[in-house]
Amino acid sequence: MRLFETLYARALVWARAPRAVYYLCALSFFEAFIFPIMPEVMLAPMMLGKRHKAFFYANLSLLFSLLGALVGYALGHWAYETVKPLLSVHMQQVITVWVDNLRTDMNQHWLAMLGALTLAALQPVIPMKLVTWAAGIVGVPVLPFLACVAVGRGKRVWLLALLIRLFGERAERMLHRNIEWIGWAALVLLGLLLGWWLWSRG
């Protein structure tokens, strides 16, 4: 099943459309809290088409990723508060203990938490949605949260812009070859994290 290659192909069509910039903004925005395909799949061909605008596209994607991260943060906070009363008393207790423990760790290890957020935003394996929703649930302060996402995601899109400027189509082909395993690896990791959490609290 080539799910992510299909989505990748769709993103390439968007990248070549006359309104590609608008599609890039939308993809960057929604990927931060719900969509499974990272913006780099549109950024790479758009940057290849206009290499002199590579960093402009990177900054535009970063801006809308930050806006989407705010939405994911808000959804994490409000969905958690809304759904919690619908759960069983036992499950409410388990989730409350988990969230309280994370908040305690956050307060006791502030710099480590900021580093973890930055690394999570930097690499493509942990879905950005998991980071933004979890930050909202735990209550990471908004400004440090945005700063970490900006640094982590910024390094990703700026590095891509630099690679495109230096290596051109070879950088895009590398992304194309690996998109399927990156997508499935992200889903498997998310499932393992969820399973581990349920098992450890059982």
Score class of each variant (00 low, 15 high):
residue 135 A to R: 07
residue 147 A to Y: 00
residue 128 M to V: 10
residue 107 N to K: 15
residue 174 M to N: 11
residue 162 L to N: 11
residue 75 L to Y: 03
residue 134 A to D: 09
residue 55 F to A: 08
residue 35 F to C: 02
residue 174 M to E: 03
residue 121 A to R: 04
residue 195 G to C: 04
residue 76 G to F: 08
residue 74 A to V: 07
residue 184 W to Y: 11
residue 38 M to R: 01
residue 113 M to I: 04
residue 112 A to P: 08
residue 163 L to I: 05
residue 196 W to A: 04
residue 60 L to G: 00
residue 201 R to I: 10
residue 3 L to I: 05
residue 166 L to R: 09
residue 45 P to V: 01
residue 120 A to D: 12
residue 77 H to M: 13
residue 151 V to K: 09
residue 77 H to T: 06
residue 80 Y to W: 14
residue 175 L to D: 15
residue 136 G to W: 09
residue 19 R to C: 13
residue 108 Q to H: 10
residue 43 L to R: 02
residue 18 P to G: 12
residue 147 A to G: 05
residue 85 P to Y: 00
residue 120 A to F: 14
residue 108 Q to V: 03
residue 186 A to K: 11
residue 132 T to V: 10
residue 95 I to Q: 01
residue 180 E to Y: 01
residue 38 M to T: 10
residue 176 H to E: 06
residue 119 L to G: 12
residue 181 W to S: 11
residue 201 R to V: 11
residue 23 Y to S: 04
residue 65 S to C: 06
residue 134 A to R: 04
residue 133 W to I: 06
residue 85 P to C: 06
residue 6 T to F: 14
residue 11 A to Q: 14
residue 146 L to Q: 15
residue 186 A to G: 11
residue 154 G to D: 02
residue 20 A to Q: 02
residue 89 V to A: 11
residue 93 Q to V: 00
residue 154 G to F: 07
residue 63 L to G: 11
residue 55 F to N: 07
residue 165 R to E: 09
residue 2 R to C: 01
residue 100 D to C: 05
residue 62 L to G: 12
residue 185 A to W: 01
residue 15 A to F: 03
residue 1 M to G: 05
residue 42 M to Y: 00
residue 117 L to K: 08
residue 57 Y to R: 02
residue 136 G to M: 12
residue 109 H to A: 15
residue 3 L to M: 09
residue 12 L to K: 10
residue 186 A to C: 15
residue 159 L to V: 03
residue 49 G to M: 08
residue 32 A to F: 03
residue 192 L to H: 00
residue 57 Y to I: 07
residue 181 W to A: 11
residue 171 A to D: 09
residue 101 N to M: 06
residue 28 S to M: 03
residue 176 H to Q: 06
residue 176 H to N: 12
residue 62 L to I: 12
residue 139 G to M: 15
residue 123 Q to E: 14
residue 58 A to H: 00
residue 77 H to S: 08
residue 59 N to I: 07
